[in-house]
Nucleic acid binder design. Sequence first.
DNA 1: ACCCAGGACTGAT
DNA 2: ATCAGTCATGGG
Length: 305
Amino acid sequence: MTLAELPHISLSLSPHGLDLDATLASGQAFSWNRTTDGRWRGWIDGRPCLVWRHDEALRAAGPELTREAVVRYFGLDLPMRDIFASFPTDPFLERAREFAPGLRVLRQDPWETLCNFICSALKQIVQIAQINAELRRALGERVEPPLLHAYPTASRLALASEAQLRECKLGFRARHLFVAARQIAQGEVSLEKIGDMPTPEAREELMRLQGVGEKVANCVLLFAYGRLEAFPIDVWVERVLRQLYFKGSKRVKLARMADFSRDHFGPYGGYAQQFLFHWIRNDPRALAKEAKFPAPPKPGKRIRR
DNA sequence: ACCCAGGACTGAT
DNA sequence: ATCAGTCATGGG
């Protein structure tokens, strides 16, 4: 029995669509693989599944996979029209959206997302995916029938040795992941409770975990908890902000860029961030010197509160 | 050989 | 509060 032989779920997509290739390979999820026939093999809420586009619908197949889980994972319940309407007039963001209109922000499992981004420090996206696969293979529970490895639980990682984690190509991140797993396994931090907290408190709570700073916390808030206001600033987004939005200004602090991003991009800023991130990494013309943009937005003065 | 990667932590100011 | 040094590993 293969995933493709299971009965599939079919969901009609809004006119805004869904670009699986852009979405599943845009550095927010790390356990999806593109099959030779253009479908995607991966996991939704800890269950293996296969997803693909069929005309104007999204199809998904997997044991115990529900419509609700797929809708929630891909954010098909989100008011995309309102989200896009909330964006500022911004030639860079408009260009980024034109580059991949169907790019979407996912709502993934908090634990795996937390681990992925603890492992993301100074790693390229392909390497984060490699680490994810290594951890599954070495420590993950086998799932039948597709004969795959689930992502290891917190208690399983806490039970492993740090040396075992290092064998998964984690490098200096092995200690971070090991300690964080123990913190979760022992209930020092509850990923369930974080889901009920206001975003600022949730961020503080996540940052109590080893290996979780502001950036990783924002990634988990955005890509797992659906906090669309969370605005992760990694080296790529920092590059966009410096070269396009703070053009000409030298020595701009990270904190000021974070303040600007919150004020400029608004309550769904994290969504804007993902468009910018994907654009800047994949469109060679994005940061080209000859690229011309009309009326670039100005950062303006720092807003005090 | 050299630089970079979806950074966080530590210790010195 | 801010800032440089340091932390493994693989790809280009």
